[in-house]
Amino acid sequence: MSVDPRLARSRPQQQQPTAVPPPPPPPPMGSLDSVSDSSLVVPDDQFKLKFCTICASNQNRSMEAHLQLALAHLPTISFGTGSLVRLPGPTVHQPNVYNFNSTTYRAIHSELASQNTQLYTANGLLNMLGRNLTIKGYPERFQDWVPGKPRLDHREDQGAAGTEAGVVDVMITCEERCFDAVLDDLHNKGGKLNHPVHVVNVDIRDNHEEALVGGRAILDLALSLNTAAAKEREVLGDGGWDRGAGAARQGFDEKVPDLIASWQERWPNLPALWSLAWL
């Protein structure tokens, strides 16, 4: 029986990262390889931060990062900050434009495939959409997100485990425009949850290759943040922070700037920004 990966979401048993079906569209082998290393998967009994990846259209960069974080078993959701989902069209002046939150990746995939299969195969769009529809149902707009609203209807999404409450600890944006948009919108949302969130920008150019590299960088960042957060809970434990000394006394939150700085040294081509904001 031939297996269409686009149907993967409707078959929960196939959502294991090891069971990504063969093409067409081609499976994201590159991403799989990068996390097949067991050191890049966070064991489920360990403490986990909740992540959120954000780019302009919730298609390429945020979705690549979403996939890589989800494959590392980190709770992840993703958003776009644009007003509409914009994908390249036949010419620069004719982009394909879709609404957030209502147009599924599957619908976009089939529309583009019927429009011009060869073009959208050649520029990698169909491949990308094929990957996206195995991750979640539809692109979501950040500004429409209500933090704290349970996301039980997203249970099928990759990386959904842990994000049921609709709260995240770390947001990773993929370009400065999105970083600004996120900070701006968080002011508008008003911080009603009183929940601190680290917003980190990782500047990634919007193409498939850079998204892949950027996804790996984001995974690296997420893992180092998560390790620090988990360590805080181990080290401090019962008895409190004042028993420790020196670095051990340093909690997760104040370590974040250091972690980002050392991450920046590992990834000098992806300029970083950071801010502590409120959900």
Binding site: H187, P257, A261, L273, W274, S275
Partner: peptide, 24 residues
């Protein structure tokens, strides 16, 4: 240091985001 650079940019950016939000 690279940390101070990131922090400086980040604080500046956060301040800007707040004020831009007020203006908007």
């Amino acid at each position: 240091t690279s940390k101070n650079k990131v922090l400086m940019k980040s604080i500046e950016r956060t301040t800007r985001a707040l004020l831009v939000n007020v203006m908007k």
